[in-house]
Design a protein around this nucleic acid. Structure first.
Lengths: 121, 121
DNA sequence: CTAAAACCTGACGCCGACGTCAGGTGCAAG
DNA sequence: CTTGCACCTGACGTCGGCGTCAGGTTTTAG
């Protein structure tokens, strides 16, 4: 596949894919003309990268954890610590997220009860 | 309270508090010398602001949802839609977060089983 | 009264994840 | 063959949430 197709299928920009390559998150081979070639699995990998970004991980961390997502590779103790630390961070973030979400939700339902409107969602 | 005390109690920088004021998230009165004065509730408010930032909301959105967290104020339908949209975004984000977290956790336990080490956490 | 600490207002710096523009090349269709 | 789109490599722009420095004022401790 060429870069445009991968971008379209994964729902990101072409620029983003080139950026991921710079950051060493996504690799490609080149054809004779120098254009990037991707295997079909690239789309899935890009989706995973996006998911990791979306939960707040920076490129550096993603670069370090991606090999483990790929396959349960050999893990040095330092990397294990990194993974555990990130997992704990995610746990805390989920707690915050739940709090905020419930707070918002309460505001919504309360506001809906307060006026005359029925209660969807 | 003065700004330094609020900052210390809320665990943020003085600069951050001034920034929140610029963004219209946190208000203060001034004494004769022109220094900011905060009511005790400010600390709680700052913690809430931080929590909202931490789940990825930008200043603009925080500015819009804060009044509802303060008190279940009168809600225009547009604001209700905004709140519901944000809540849904948070729901999606929690799902992503759970996925990534579990993925990481699986990597950790699998790695721990693979070598000889016992299994903490 | 004085020195130090805390505060004030600009204003510039920074970093990450791209957007975007410039100027040139590769490739498929008519 | 040429037209036109997809692609290439720099390189600069942006935006948000502050950090930080400069240069001055106010409050507090001794």
């Amino acid at each position: 596949m060429r870069i445009g197709e991968v971008a379209a299928k994964a729902g990101v920009s072409v620029r983003a894919l080139r950026y991921y390559e710079q950051q060493d998150l996504l690799h490609s081979t080149r054809n004779q003309g120098g254009q990037r070639q991707y295997p079909p699995g690239a789309v899935e990998r890009v989706r995973l990268i996006q998911q990791l970004y979306s939960v707040g991980l920076p490129s550096r961390t993603i670069r370090e954890v991606l090999p483990f997502a790929d396959s349960g590779e050999a893990a040095s103790p330092e990397l294990l610590e990194l993974l555990a630390a990130e997992r704990d961070r995610l746990d805390r973030q989920m707690t915050d997220l739940r709090d905020v979400r419930n707070r918002l939700h309460d505001c919504i339902t309360e506001a809906r009860n307060h006026d005359g409107t029925g209660s969807p969602s």
